[in-house]
Amino acid sequence: MSVVERLNDEIKTAMKEKNQRRLDVVRMLKAKILDVNARGEVGEAESVKLFRSYAKTLAETIDLAKKAGKNEIAATTEAELAIVKEFLPPELTAEQITAVVQDVIAELGKDKSKFGLLMKTVMAKLSGQADGAAVKDILNKLLA
């Protein structure tokens, strides 16, 4: 089942259940895919990238709302983020990321001047299963 088909099924389910928040979030995810490709022909990897970007935006919104004392907005956004996370593969643990980073360092060499190449290679191997900031932190620790 393609991503768009799954989103369409989720839209139907949310409409039947009269779950407006879920319906709005799933429609937003579908709109993000259609914005990239009008025919909705976006692969799994591309959709994960789009959804992760949206999840990151929602997380930033939650932080800002909490800092501003807007707890109602933060709670609403947290509920939206939980729905978006249902469409994302589970993120790898720090230990799993470290293992991949160590493999890439063994393959390409432990040279801090190759940081960009190492980062790019690790991110390609992880294919959207880890946050770039977490990978960067682990890579910095191992290169130090």
Rank of each mutant, 00 (worst) to 15 (best):
V26K: 07
M28N: 12
L29T: 01
L29N: 02
K30C: 07
K30L: 15
K30Y: 02
A31Q: 14
A31L: 07
K32R: 15
D35W: 14
D35T: 15
V36D: 12
V36Q: 14
R39F: 13
R39W: 04
G40L: 00
G40P: 03
G40V: 02
G40N: 02
V42E: 00
V42P: 11
G43L: 00
G43C: 04
G43H: 03
A45N: 06
A45W: 05
E46W: 02
E46D: 12
S47Y: 03
V48D: 08
V48L: 02
F51L: 05
F51E: 03
F51T: 01
R52V: 01
Y54A: 03
Y54E: 10
A59S: 05
T61M: 10
I62A: 05
I62Y: 04
D63S: 09
D63K: 01
A65E: 11
A65V: 06
K66R: 05
K66N: 08
K67Y: 08
K67G: 06
K67L: 10
A68H: 04
A68F: 13
A68P: 07
G69E: 10
K70W: 13
N71V: 11
I73R: 00
A75T: 00
A75H: 00
A75D: 09
T76S: 14
T76W: 12
T76R: 12
T76G: 15
E78L: 00
E78Y: 00
A79Q: 13
A79R: 14
A79E: 11
A79F: 11
E80V: 07
L81N: 09
A82T: 09
A82C: 06
A82S: 14
V84S: 02
K85A: 04
